[in-house]
Amino acid sequence: MDIDASEIVIQDFSTNLNEKYSGNEFNYHTTEGEAQNFLARGILWLLQGLHNIFGIDVHPGFAKLIEMIIYIILISATIYFLIKLLIGKDAVSFFRKKNTLVAPIHSTEEHIDTIDLNELIKNALQEKNYRLAIRYMYLKALQELSIKNLITYHFEKTNTDYKREIDDVSIRQNFNRISYLYDYIWYGEFELNEQGYTNAKESFDQLSIKIKNIG
């Protein structure tokens, strides 16, 4: 049997191994690469920058908390824009509590000619609910048109249906104007103040005068 007679060389290891091998590539307690997504790696990079520049050490649990908060914000923003895209209106109003003061009018059960809309308008104004007052004023316009036989009222008809029934050009144009105001204020949930109500009321008053002047 051959015996290895080569000379043995004793290597002297450096005593500053901790300083020499202290980079991130030698940190085996951190999960990197494919195991982390882009957001987690970005947060880790940011925290490492804080450590390198300011010497700030951040607990790993805090980094996880930041990641969760960012996820919540991103998910909430995505839901907001999806709702806005689907319902075609301000998404905030989708989450906002709806106005519980609803017109006590059952259009499917009683004819509009039997409703005291002047009293309803008065009550709405006393409560400073100008948006509801506009709703009643629009119903009053339909009531006046129906009484004069300028339209045939039915709860399933649309503004366009009524407009087609009005032969008088001036009244039809004025009705088109108040229909626009009503849709914008009521269905658009436009928050109306007293001055805005006064401005809108002028168009309703003009139509009312024209209807009364019809023989």
Score class of each variant (00 low, 15 high):
residue 102 V to Y: 04
residue 170 S to V: 08
residue 121 I to W: 04
residue 56 I to M: 09
residue 86 L to I: 13
residue 36 Q to Y: 06
residue 168 D to V: 00
residue 40 A to G: 02
residue 8 I to H: 03
residue 12 D to L: 10
residue 97 K to C: 01
residue 9 V to Q: 01
residue 11 Q to R: 09
residue 191 E to C: 02
residue 77 A to M: 15
residue 12 D to S: 10
residue 29 H to F: 12
residue 70 I to K: 07
residue 89 K to N: 15
residue 195 Q to M: 05
residue 2 D to Q: 09
residue 82 L to W: 06
residue 18 N to Q: 15
residue 118 N to V: 01
residue 64 K to Y: 09
residue 101 L to S: 10
residue 154 H to C: 04
residue 91 A to Y: 15
residue 200 A to R: 02
residue 148 K to Q: 07
residue 123 N to Q: 15
residue 137 M to P: 01
residue 102 V to M: 05
residue 185 I to F: 05
residue 20 K to V: 14
residue 78 T to K: 08
residue 10 I to L: 05
residue 212 K to L: 07
residue 110 E to M: 13
residue 207 L to R: 00
residue 142 L to P: 06
residue 178 I to L: 00
residue 117 L to S: 12
residue 56 I to D: 07
residue 30 T to D: 11
residue 79 I to H: 08
residue 116 D to S: 09
residue 13 F to R: 03
residue 139 L to Q: 12
residue 122 K to W: 10
residue 91 A to C: 12
residue 167 D to Y: 03
residue 5 A to Y: 13
residue 47 L to R: 05
residue 143 Q to D: 02
residue 89 K to P: 06
residue 126 Q to E: 15
residue 142 L to N: 13
residue 107 S to Y: 12
residue 177 R to D: 06
residue 202 E to L: 12
residue 22 S to E: 10
residue 51 H to A: 06
residue 133 A to T: 01
residue 166 I to G: 01
residue 97 K to F: 07
residue 7 E to F: 07
residue 122 K to Y: 14
residue 34 E to I: 13
residue 62 F to I: 15
residue 78 T to E: 08
residue 158 T to I: 05
residue 19 E to W: 03
residue 134 I to Q: 01
residue 42 G to S: 13
residue 60 P to V: 00
